[in-house]
């Protein structure tokens, strides 16, 4: 007993830890995970608030002239949006009328919850965002997350005041999509974010008769999948390639670059209780 036993001690320690971890019930692991996340969440929220404050103060430094110009631009935008809103209301009524006539189930309605991004975790292994809203704000797992440019991803985990969003560039993110103006479903899946480049995805199961005709096509969400409302932009498909089996084509999807620098997103929370977004 001496030197050798001293040297063996780390191995014993490792063995013990492994054994303990092996036999710990899953709910305890889950409990530890949630607590460790909740423990650090205030730090990330504080950092995020600090950034917001920083932004606030940098905006405060703008001159009055700049503010007047911005206000004027905003007023114009508001009137344009008001017009769009009125049009949308008329279209919604028309849709409702058609749904009644054709005896179709109503389109799912969503409640929008806007949330700040507190942290981005994007690398070759995983692609996710942490947002500053959680269970307390009605966020649920599987809910779609969008921004002005289209789809951001899907809520993966929800904590008390924060939630994790799996980005559309994540290889684990797969949804039914369709080309703009074509309702046939294709499969979209993320493949990651290459360095110094746009995040990317791929599409499978594109019908063989579909062509991009030398102009890139926009890929949008399909409501057939049951999670996302129809028509939200996913990305752009530049080229399609026929698969050797001749059944389908596949292609690469270029996602918007600003997906990587988002500071605010909106979570769509289904209002209809029948709409099941969970797996």
């Amino acid at each position: 007993m001496g030197k050798s036993s001293v040297h063996a001690r780390p191995l014993v320690l490792l063995g013990c830890l492994l054994l303990i971890w092996w036999f710990v019930p899953p709910f305890i692991k889950s409990f530890v995970q949630v607590n460790f996340f909740e423990l650090q969440a205030p730090a990330w929220s504080a950092a995020s608030h600090l950034k917001d404050l920083q932004l606030y103060w940098s905006l405060r430094n703008h001159s009055q002239q700049e503010l007047i110009e911005a206000g004027r631009d905003l007023a114009r935008l508001n009137s344009a949006y008001e017009l769009s809103r009125q049009k949308e209301a008329a279209l919604n009524k028309e849709i409702e009328h058609l749904e009644k006539m054709l005896n179709l189930p109503p389109l799912p309605n969503y409640n929008y919850e806007v949330a700040r991004v507190t942290r981005r975790d994007i690398n070759q292994w995983w692609q996710q965002l942490v947002i500053r809203k959680g269970k307390d704000h009605g966020i649920i797992e599987g809910a779609p997350v969008v921004y002005a440019g289209g789809v951001v991803g899907r809520i993966q985990k929800v904590f008390k005041n924060t939630a994790i969003v799996e980005l559309i560039s994540s290889p684990n993110f797969r949804i039914a999509a369709s080309f703009e103006g074509d309702r046939r479903p294709v499969i979209y899946q993320g493949v990651g974010t290459p360095a110094f480049s746009n995040p990317r995805g791929i599409i499978h199961n594109v019908p063989p008769d579909y062509t991009t005709e030398s102009t890139p096509k926009r890929l949008v969400t399909s409501r057939l999948g049951g999670t996302f409302p129809e028509g939200l932009v996913l990305g752009q498909v530049d080229e399609l390639k026929a698969r050797s089996d001749g059944l389908f084509q596949e292609g690469k999807v270029s996602l918007p670059q600003n997906l990587m620098s988002l500071s605010e997103v909106a979570i769509l929370i289904p209002l209809d209780e029948d709409v099941d977004t969970t797996i």
């Binding site: 684990n172 797969r174 949804i175 479903p185 057939l224 999948g225 049951g226 999670t227 797996i279």
Partner: peptide, 24 residues
């Protein structure tokens, strides 16, 4: 059906033991 296929595509995890199989 295409609707069922689209729903399953979206709601079955990528690494689940249940997957969609394509024949012709």
């Amino acid at each position: 059906s295409p609707e069922e296929y689209a729903r399953l595509t979206e709601q079955i995890p990528v690494d689940a033991p249940i997957q969609l199989f394509t024949d012709s």
